[in-house]
Amino acid sequence: MSDSSSDHHAAAAHGPVTSPGASPEDVGHGPDDHHGDGGHGGLWQYLAVFVALCFLTTMSFLTYSPYWPWRDEPQVGWAFMMAVSCTKALLVVLFFMHVLWEANWKYVLTIPAAMMAIFLAIMLIPDVGFRNRMVSQERALHMARGSDLKLLEQAAAGEADHDGHHDAGHVERHDN
């Protein structure tokens, strides 16, 4: 920046360097002086954002509480937590990263990034959906299945019932 400011007087001799459309405060200022008006930031605003972020973090735990009505459908909880996360991310980007108060260049970065994120998510859908349709024989042999988890849970339940006595009874249960 220093070389540009030292050239200012030379530029002034040759006429205006800014195009008529650009407002003077948009161009050529250092990183620190276009924030000087106190139009943003301030301790209280940051503290309010901080409190909101903490509140939202505890909101994520709402899905674990007995008051959460959709305990049988974890997808609802996941969607809720992602919504909470997006809100938190938005607060951080807008206030802490000062994007709220930046000039229009912010759209040059945010719009392509947002589009890329959306396309990435859309393109992953078939990968998630079809992932277990085709697996190699070796993988099918070694990968965990839901039935294995059931087996382990049964074993754990048997353990709790009999307090350490595993014998013929368990084998019978497996056979059915």
Partner: peptide, 10 residues
């Protein structure tokens, strides 16, 4: 049997 091994794992 598989269930025995599940007990072992548990």
């Amino acid at each position: 049997q598989a269930f025995d091994l599940a007990v072992v794992a548990d």
